[in-house]
Each structure stands twice: as structure tokens, then as C-alpha cells.
Amino acid sequence: MKTYRFKRILVPVSLAVESTTAFKQALYFRKKFGAEIVLLHVVQKIGGISNVFQPKLKDSLQGRGMVRLIRFTKMHFRGRIPDDVKLRVEVGNYLNIINSISSSENFDLVILNRSNRIEGLSERFKTNSIDQIIRESRCPVISVNDRWTGSGIRNILVPVDISRQSRDLLNWSIILGKAFNAKIKLLAALTVNIELKRSLAYKKSQIMKHYIEREGIDCTVSIVEKENFGKNDALVEGAKKTPADILLIQGFQDLMFSHSQSERLLVEFLQNSSRPIFSLGVKDEGFVANLLTMSKKQVNISDRISSKALRW
């Protein structure tokens, strides 16, 4: 059966040591899917002066940035950069440029490092910057810290937020499970005094497990029972105890309001997890259907899922 292929991947790099982790993660996807990767280095403007008045300065900054990017890249390829590794240097605001490129150009995935040094951005704003990129990106974003999936992706941990619709989360669980021949580990939280099998956490996770297994993917369910705990705290604690190579998080796709419990859940995982996090991008009705080269049966899996069943 045909599966999803990540064909074109954007990789922002600061050229600092920590950029190597995101770069290596991108190389893993390049090898796995035969993908083209675009290494993007953003050079901050000096003094905030408009490029209109200093075109030569922009050209100079861009040229020096390209020299550094070439040197950085050649170190990983024994001096010769492959044809499917493209280099790009832009001058301007780091966040604005990444958001603009990932939202307007034809990329299937963005891979970046959560600990990148960003000139002019203090430490306490770094997580917020990743949030903003995830919030505005049309395509999924993988953020890595000090770990990457160099030995492969065999187990995918999927925290389930029972307060949100989960069609996209279910679809991507199946997509990634098939792409990597990986086991899906659903994780839900029960924080009220109710019999487990009567809880929404149990019912929803069992429904998702049913559809995942129906696609031939191995799937397990774990319920963290922490009465009087916050749901986010229970999920984060449960995730720490669950072995997995990567986390699949729903992100900001269908949020109507910022600073909600669901948004805070993603932020807490970004802050506390050392594992790579695969966050879904901004909802685009045609995104999955246009990019998946799968059978009609798999592409239209949402049509077979009860709207009522996954509405909680």
C-alpha cells in the first residue's frame, strides 16, 4: 500500500552547535523518504534599518551568511553538498521569515531545534517563538531538543486530549504508524472520581484504538489515573514514564481561543520533553488529501469515523 512521503522539508538552522540535532533529524527523513531538505539560515538585520535604504548591507549580510552556511553543511557531507540539499539565506526577523516561508511555500514538514540561539531573543521567549511557528505553519512541525530519532521510529506516543475533536490526530497516527511501521501508544488522563470504563478518556481512546488497529497498526492504550490532578499535569507525567521515540501532539489546529488548556498542553510538552515532538500544522482542508499518495480508502478515513464518537 502506498504511504505518505515527506518530499520537501524546511530546516531552519542557526549554525550553532545545537542546530546539528535538527539537521541530523532532517537527514534521517531525507534517507527514509528520499526527501529534499532546504537548510534556511536567517541573518538578523542590524539596527532595524530598512533594507530599502541599505541594499548593499543586505547583500553583504546575505553573502556572509551563505559562506557560513556552506561551511556548516560541508562538515556533514565530507566537503561535497548533495543535490537534494538546498541552501537558503534570508535577512530579517527570524520568526517572520520562517512563518512566511513555511506558510506560503510547498513544504511537507518543518524541522527545527527548540534550543536554537536567536539573536536579540532572550531565553524566556524561546519556547514562545516555537509556539508561534507551530501556530502559523500550514504543515506539520517537528521540534527537537537534545534527542533525535537516529535509530528509527518504532514507538509513537500520542497524548489524547478528550476536550477536543481528534480526527486529524487519528489520521496522523495512522499515517505515521504506516510510514514508519511503528506502534502507536495512546495516552489519556482520568482525573475525576469515576469508574474507568465509564469515563470519556477510556471511551475515546478505545474508539481511536479500534480505528488504528483496523488499519493494521499495532496500538496500545494507557490511562493515567490521577484524581484531583490537572489533566495536563497527568499527561505530562504519564508521558515521562512511557518509552517512545517521538510524540505526536495535536497542536493549535482547531483552537478558537489562545491560552486554552489544549494550548498549554503543547507548551508544557515543548518545555518538558527531551524527545522530538511532531506537532500538527494550521488546519488546511486540502492539506492531507493533496499531499498523501495513499489509497482512497486511507485518505478518506475521516469519512468512516463517527463524528459523534470523536467530538468529545
Rank of each mutant, 00 (worst) to 15 (best):
G63N: 15
Q54Y: 06
L266G: 05
M208D: 05
F107M: 05
V288S: 10
D245M: 03
S60T: 12
V67T: 13
Q165R: 12
A188S: 08
H210G: 03
S262Q: 08
T191Y: 05
E36S: 07
K296R: 11
G47K: 06
V89Y: 09
I184W: 11
I249R: 03
H76M: 12
D233E: 12
K24M: 04
V158S: 02
Y28A: 00
V224D: 08
Y28W: 04
P12W: 10
K308Q: 14
L270E: 07
L27W: 00
F72Q: 01
D83W: 12
S60L: 08
L39K: 02
L157A: 04
A289F: 10
I162E: 07
L87R: 12
V85A: 03
G216W: 07
I46K: 14
I49G: 13
F53P: 02
N171E: 15
T20S: 01
G152R: 02
I133S: 08
N96S: 14
V110M: 07
Q261R: 13
F77Q: 01
K7D: 08
N93D: 14
S143G: 10
G238P: 01
Q271W: 04
H210S: 12
Q261Y: 04
T73F: 09
D84E: 04
K31I: 00
R30F: 01
L280E: 06
N145F: 04
D218R: 15
S205L: 09
Q271A: 10
T293I: 11
L10N: 06
A188G: 10
R71G: 02
E237C: 09
A188W: 06
T220R: 13
V160L: 03
L200T: 11
N290E: 10
F53N: 15
A35K: 04
D168N: 10
S129I: 04
L200I: 10
L176W: 08
F53S: 12
L190H: 01
S104F: 08
S100N: 14
L10W: 01
P55H: 06
G92N: 07
E119W: 05
I134D: 08
I81P: 00
L255M: 11
N51R: 07
Q25E: 12
G230H: 05
I46E: 14
S103T: 13
N128T: 11
A309N: 03
I194H: 01
I101H: 04
T242Q: 09
R117N: 09
I223R: 00
I277Y: 07
I97C: 15
D161A: 08
L39R: 07
L270I: 15
I46R: 09
I118H: 08
L170R: 09
P82H: 09
L265V: 07
E105N: 12
K197N: 09
N51W: 02
S129T: 09
P159Y: 13
K58Y: 11
I153T: 03
S295M: 00
V13N: 01
D168E: 15
A309Q: 14
N128Y: 10
Q44I: 09
E215I: 01
I217L: 03
I301E: 03
I301P: 02
Q25L: 00
L121G: 03
N116Y: 00
L95D: 09
S102G: 05
L248R: 14
G230N: 09
E225H: 05
I212M: 05
T293L: 08
V141M: 06
R147V: 00
R78W: 03
K74E: 06
I118W: 06
Q271E: 15
L27P: 00
V43T: 12
K197L: 11
K203I: 11
T293C: 15
L27D: 01
Q62Y: 06
I217F: 02
